[in-house]
């Protein structure tokens, strides 16, 4: 939510940019890869073998629905991996 209206009053943090399937996506330092994607309005990024869209389901690293490739390494849980500025994320590489 918008920081100035947030009752939790989050502190200042630096913006980061990650590259998702070749396109830059802006996020905040400290967010997970899933947090950056969802903050940018994306709800789904993986496709199952049967062509069904998937994104975050459990949010705590159990379900593995949110897998992405990070800097060429496949099968990384987007909800668990902290995004680093410049990370290259691919949603197309599947194991």
């Amino acid at each position: 939510m918008e920081t100035h209206r947030d009752p939790v009053r989050p502190g200042e943090t630096s913006p980061i940019t990650i590259i998702v399937d070749g396109a830059p996506v802006r996020g905040l330092d400290g967010q997970t890869v899933a947090g950056v994607l969802m903050g940018a309005g994306r709800l789904a990024w993986r496709t199952t073998r049967n062509g069904r869209p998937r994104g975050v389901f459990c949010g705590i690293g159990v379900c593995h629905d949110c897998l992405v490739a990070v800097n060429g390494l496949p099968d990384v849980r987007a909800c668990q991996r902290r995004a680093a500025d410049g990370d290259s994320i691919s949603t197309e590489e599947q194991a």
């Binding site: 939510m1 920081t3 969802m38 975050v56 459990c58 705590i60 909800c79």
Partner: peptide
């Protein structure tokens, strides 16, 4: 729990 985790650690609804 996903809603709770995203709210608490990302401030995302």
């Amino acid at each position: 729990g996903a809603a709770q985790a995203l709210a608490k650690s990302e401030r995302i609804a």
